[in-house]
Design a protein around this nucleic acid. Structure first.
Lengths: 133, 133
DNA sequence: CGGAATCCAGGTTGATACTG
DNA sequence: CAGTATCAACCTGGATTCCG
């Protein structure tokens, strides 16, 4: 018996974020980026129009929100539903994959929000120790 | 019965990453930032020296790794253990909080690595639909 | 080895203005 | 409303050099 060789791919390519060239690293960055994580988190509350999303994500500019949404839509994390009405109405919502991602992200966010006292204490300790080097 | 009022803070301040000025947003960015997530992920495999960490996180420069580690140390996510030997030896490891964070991050990373086929397919669909607008 | 400091190019950001 | 275009300003990140 020879090494089995089929005409179709026998094994899915391994994806590893720790490797510089792996496309999974890009997606991780889209999802965890400065506005990516907040946008996904905001969409977790339900479908949302562009400007409402802007309000939920305090501080994001139109441009950044637009760019972020496009990257997330391209990766299949967010679904964009445009209605050809006038004035235009566009709704964004998470895809099934997006909901899974959002869940894990929310878990991280909640952990951090709940640990901020501890973080703030650590910062003070660090600053008095190293700040006044 | 009156509303209970004690002399010490009755309620911990609410932390909300979606609010522009909340310090939790900074910590989220340290943890999910371009190198933050990979550094924390790499430290999950165990304590590690500076240059070994550089090898684990493919593509980081000394400067970025150094900056990233300092931010994470300040937030109490990473512990730095320096030995005053010559040559110097410094070990980094996750704190208990860091391990919790790393766990949630790993969960997200694994999800994404396992979904990349789907993501790549979504990208192709997007590019053929919108790319040739 | 483990960093800190400096320099600098280029990418990212966010007003502002404009379009459909 | 839902974006896109433009542009200056800022910041990121890499390379290099030097120190303990």
């Amino acid at each position: 018996m020879e090494t089995p060789v089929s005409t179709e791919a026998v094994e899915p390519p391994p994806f590893d974020v720790f490797a510089r060239a792996c496309p999974s690293r890009e997606t991780l960055e889209h999802v965890t980026g400065r506005w990516g994580s907040l946008t996904v988190g905001a969409l977790r509350e339900g479908p949302c129009r562009f400007n409402e999303l802007r309000r939920r994500v305090d501080g994001v500019s139109e441009k950044m929100l637009s760019q972020t949404l496009q990257a997330l839509e391209r990766d299949g994390i967010v679904h964009r539903e445009a209605q050809p009405t006038n004035p235009p109405r566009v709704d964004y919502e998470l895809t099934p994959l997006g909901r899974e991602v959002a869940g894990r992200l929310a878990s991280l966010i909640h952990l951090l929000e709940g640990s901020m006292e501890q973080v703030l204490t650590a910062r003070q300790a660090y600053d008095t120790t190293r700040g006044s080097r």
